[in-house]
Amino acid sequence: DEWTVEDKVLFEQAFSFHGKSFHRIQQMLPDKTIASLVKYYYSWKKTR
């Protein structure tokens, strides 16, 4: 599952609005599965 720079920026924006409500985040990133969002979240969180 490839994440473009745009995907990553959108994820951060969606996360700032919705927190860990992955269903709502998915509405902003409809091409990503919930599982993909959760997996990305945990790898992204480690870099914070």
Rank of each mutant, 00 (worst) to 15 (best):
S16L: 11
K46L: 05
Q27I: 00
K45R: 13
Q13V: 15
A14F: 09
I34Y: 08
T47G: 10
T47N: 13
S43Q: 12
P30W: 15
S43M: 07
E6Y: 04
Q26H: 06
T4V: 03
S16R: 14
H18E: 00
V9N: 14
P30T: 03
M28F: 08
E2D: 06
L10W: 01
I34G: 03
W3M: 06
S36T: 10
H18R: 00
I25A: 07
V5D: 13
I34A: 01
W3P: 00
S36Q: 14
D1G: 14
K39M: 03
E12L: 08
T4A: 05
Y40K: 10
I25H: 04
K45G: 04
D31P: 06
H18L: 03
D7W: 03
H18I: 15
P30V: 04
V38K: 15
K39V: 03
D7Q: 12
D31N: 10
T33I: 00
K39F: 02
E2W: 10
W3S: 05
W44T: 10
K32Q: 01
L10T: 04
K8I: 10
L10F: 05
D7E: 06
F15T: 06
L29R: 03
A35T: 14
Q27N: 12
Q13D: 05
F22P: 01
K45F: 08
S21W: 13
K32F: 02
L10G: 06
K46S: 09
Y42K: 15
M28R: 06
F15M: 04
E6F: 08
T33G: 11
W3L: 01
V38F: 05
E12S: 02
V5F: 12
D7T: 04
I34P: 00
I25M: 04
Q13T: 01
Q26C: 12
S16C: 06
E6W: 02
D7R: 01
Q13S: 07
R48E: 14
H23A: 12
Y42T: 14
Y42F: 07
I34T: 05
V9A: 12
F15E: 01
G19D: 08
K45T: 12
A14C: 04
E12H: 06
I25Y: 08
I34S: 04
V9P: 01
F17A: 11
T47V: 03
L10H: 05
S21D: 15
K45D: 14
S36K: 06
V38A: 12
E12I: 11
S36I: 08
M28H: 10
P30K: 12
Q26T: 01
V38S: 12
R48G: 14
Q26R: 12
E6T: 10
A14N: 02
G19L: 05
H18S: 04
K46N: 09
D31V: 08
D31T: 10
A14W: 05
V38G: 13
L29V: 04
L37M: 04
H23C: 05
I34L: 09
